[in-house]
Amino acid sequence: MDLFLIIFLLCIGASFIQRTTGFGFGIFIMTMLPFLMPSFGEATTLSGLLAMSTSLIVAVRMRKYVVWKNLLPMLLTFIVVSAIPIFYLKRMDDILLRRILGIVLILISIYFEFFSRRIKIPATKSNQVGIGVLSGLMGGFFGMQGPPAVLYFISSESDKNHYMAMCQTYFVVGNLMMTLERAYNGFLTPTVGIDYLYGIGGVVLGSALGAFVFNHIPRYIFRYVVYTYIGISGIIILFTA
């Protein structure tokens, strides 16, 4: 199959998942993208650019639901912390890191699936900074900053519209800053730019399909859809590392 067609199809699937659950673009597409791109760094850069485009569409449409005072401490922490792993990415064993990430995602999914009714993460500054640190490390190393942020927002926000708006705004700004950091480290190449142009059509199509599904997911089962997808993502990453 043609490389550009594969990227287009991957973007449909990744954008559909992102729009339906609020995250997962990087998790889905990075199970295959490192095998299609010249380097792992270029794969994370392309993933970040496409994920940013997916989130931007939603963030603009749902901007009225964003509460900036609950977002900025976490976002600023993420921006600072994510620069560190991006700088060291060329020196790291990405296979080992991906296996560790897979195990962590599976454990997180199991824990929240069974104990979510007892879990409430208050919107305190310390919690926001802590989530920002964890999300920054995962975003910088893997291009997968979503799970920590998702678990925080789905617990702290009042409904799925606020949850979606907060997540997507966080991802837009975060991916923009990480793209600049990756460009500085030489990962934003002409190959990334060409592949982005082929993938953006898939982003638009997948986002439209995901929006339809999102609007029809009952509120009481929404968080379980998210937790289940985190676990599935962990299994995929663990066995494709």
Rank of each mutant, 00 (worst) to 15 (best):
L3W: 01
L3F: 08
L3M: 07
F8G: 13
C11W: 05
G13V: 05
F16V: 10
I17W: 04
R19Q: 12
T20R: 01
T21V: 03
G22S: 03
G22H: 01
F25I: 10
G26K: 04
M32E: 15
L33W: 05
L33V: 11
L33S: 12
P34H: 08
P34K: 07
F35H: 14
F35M: 15
L36D: 10
A43F: 00
L46D: 07
S47N: 11
G48Q: 11
G48T: 15
M52N: 05
S55Y: 15
S55L: 14
L56D: 10
I57R: 14
V60K: 13
V60S: 11
R61L: 14
M62R: 13
R63V: 13
K64Y: 13
Y65V: 15
V67M: 12
N70W: 08
P73L: 00
P73K: 00
M74G: 03
L75K: 06
L76Y: 11
I79Y: 07
I79D: 06
V80D: 02
A83I: 06
A83E: 12
I84S: 06
P85Q: 07
I86V: 00
I86M: 06
K90E: 04
I95L: 14
L96V: 09
R99K: 06
I100Y: 06
I103Q: 00
V104C: 07
V104Q: 03
F112Q: 04
F112E: 03
F115P: 05
S116E: 04
R117A: 10
R117Y: 13
R117M: 08
R118I: 10
K120I: 12
K120S: 11
P122V: 09
T124N: 01
K125T: 11
G130D: 06
I131E: 02
V133Y: 05
S135G: 03
M138Y: 04
G140Q: 14
F142Q: 08
F142Y: 09
M144L: 14
Q145G: 15
P148G: 04
Y152R: 05
S155R: 00
S156E: 00
S158I: 13
D159T: 02
Y163V: 07
A165I: 01
M166N: 13
Q168N: 15
Y170P: 11
V172F: 12
V173N: 10
L176T: 10
M178G: 07
T179M: 12
L180G: 03
L180S: 05
Y184I: 02
L188Y: 00
I194C: 05
I194L: 10
D195F: 10
Y198N: 14
G199E: 06
G202T: 12
G202Q: 04
V204A: 12
L205E: 12
L205V: 15
G206Q: 09
G206R: 01
A208S: 14
A208P: 12
L209D: 10
G210D: 13
A211Q: 13
P218L: 01
R219G: 15
I221N: 04
V225Q: 02
V225H: 02
V225R: 02
Y227S: 02
T228E: 04
T228N: 01
I230R: 00
S233F: 03
G234M: 01
I235N: 03
I236Q: 11
I236W: 10
I237W: 02
